[in-house]
């Protein structure tokens, strides 16, 4: 929806013109209005207007981008497709009153984002994203959503709770959000406008082969270039040659690398991760460990209440769940006292 319907007539250095900025702001306003109509409320009969306004603006904007002057900017049609999916999924996610659907729309956003990562030659991250987010985190969310669902009314199973059905301060939030968007975009164009149109020539291709001796060796073994008893001593990535060493008299000797031997994304990420950020990697592991312990401590049930309160976890008995806290139901009014009560 808010994806800008801007005709990308920017200067070569990427700085937007005044016309572009005006279009961005107009898109912000249109997006804000569309989102406002879409946000959940009781008896919202105006959502089609929002859908038409937001979706139309989004689609038309993307189309204009694709056909506009920046069509040859190095992005292909998949970008627009995936961007449409991502933004549309995101909007739907925050506007859908039911948490389960919101979570499912979020999976759509994750998948679209993963597609964009593939576009950006970040295949490993694309699949990691799908596995971690769509596979692990979102499933956890779904579990919690199901566990923490309020008791549905048996006679009206589709009744929404009040806090799901109505948005909180939609106008103010939307205005602030889109003002923030305008500010962010302004700064963004300002920043990228100062950057060169193309980055400096990066390191020669496959330079990581110098440290990926095992990969080179296994590739060489598939050919007949490598003899028994030899191993790869070093690799010259620029000359595409490998030095093989052995106990034989002709060692060392140079052999060319196979033409189809390349460093892929996973190799690059792994080399960078282990070569440049080993400490951060360890810290990340520690964080995950702590988060796991913390989650267990926070979410565990009290042993005292174990036989009786298992059902209260799914929330179909409000009074019982209150009694979880301890002997004094009134303690539940206060978080701090409640914690004390729980621990006692």
């Amino acid at each position: 929806m808010a994806a800008p319907g801007r005709s990308h007539v920017s200067c070569p250095d990427g700085a937007p013109t005044m016309v572009e900025m005006s279009i961005i702001y107009a898109a912000c306003v249109a997006g804000a209005i569309g989102l406002l109509f879409l946000l959940p409320r009781r008896g919202n009969r105006w959502w089609p207007i929002g859908a038409v306004l937001g979706g139309g603006a989004l689609g038309a904007g993307l189309l204009a981008l694709a056909r506009g002057p920046s069509a040859g900017a190095g992005v292909d049609v998949f970008f627009y497709l995936l961007a449409f999916l991502a933004v549309g999924g995101a909007v739907r996610m925050i506007t859908h009153p039911r948490p389960v659907y919101a979570a499912l729309y979020f999976i759509l956003v994750v998948v679209a984002t993963a597609g964009l990562f593939v576009q950006l030659a970040a295949e490993f991250m694309a699949f990691a994203l799908i596995i971690v987010y769509a596979g692990a985190i979102l499933i956890t969310y779904l579990f919690v959503i199901m566990l923490a669902q309020e008791a549905p009314d048996d006679r009206h199973p589709n009744t929404l709770t009040e806090y799901d059905a109505t948005a909180r301060e939609p106008v103010a939030s939307t205005i602030v959000g889109f003002v923030l968007l305008a500010a962010l975009l302004g700064m963004m164009y300002r920043g990228t406008g100062a950057m060169p149109a193309h980055a400096q020539a990066h390191a020669p291709a496959d330079v990581e082969l110098a440290v990926l001796l095992g990969k080179v060796e296994s590739a060489l073994r598939k050919t007949d270039l490598m003899r028994r008893g030899e191993r790869v001593g070093s690799v010259d990535a620029a000359q595409r040659t490998a030095t093989l060493i052995s106990t034989s008299p002709e060692s060392p000797r140079l052999v060319p690398l196979p033409a189809d031997l390349h460093v892929d994304n996973v190799d690059s990420v792994g080399v960078s991760l282990l070569n440049e950020f080993p400490v951060s990697l360890e810290v990340a592991g520690a964080i995950l460990m702590l988060a796991m312990v913390g989650a267990v401590v926070l979410a565990r049930k009290e042993r005292l209440d174990a036989p009786h309160d298992s059902q209260s976890l799914i929330g179909n008995a409000p009074h019982d769940s209150q009694s979880l806290i301890g002997n004094a139901p009134h303690d539940s009014q206060s978080l701090i006292v409640g914690v004390g009560g729980e621990r006692s």
Binding site: A2, I94, V109, M188, T192
Partner: peptide, 21 residues
């Protein structure tokens, strides 16, 4: 290219703001 980068950053900002709203 910088133009393509602008596309992605634009998408990023939009998604961020939507999430924030």
């Amino acid at each position: 290219s910088i133009l393509a980068l602008n596309h992605y950053l634009l998408l990023s900002a939009v998604l961020f703001v939507i999430g924030f709203i």
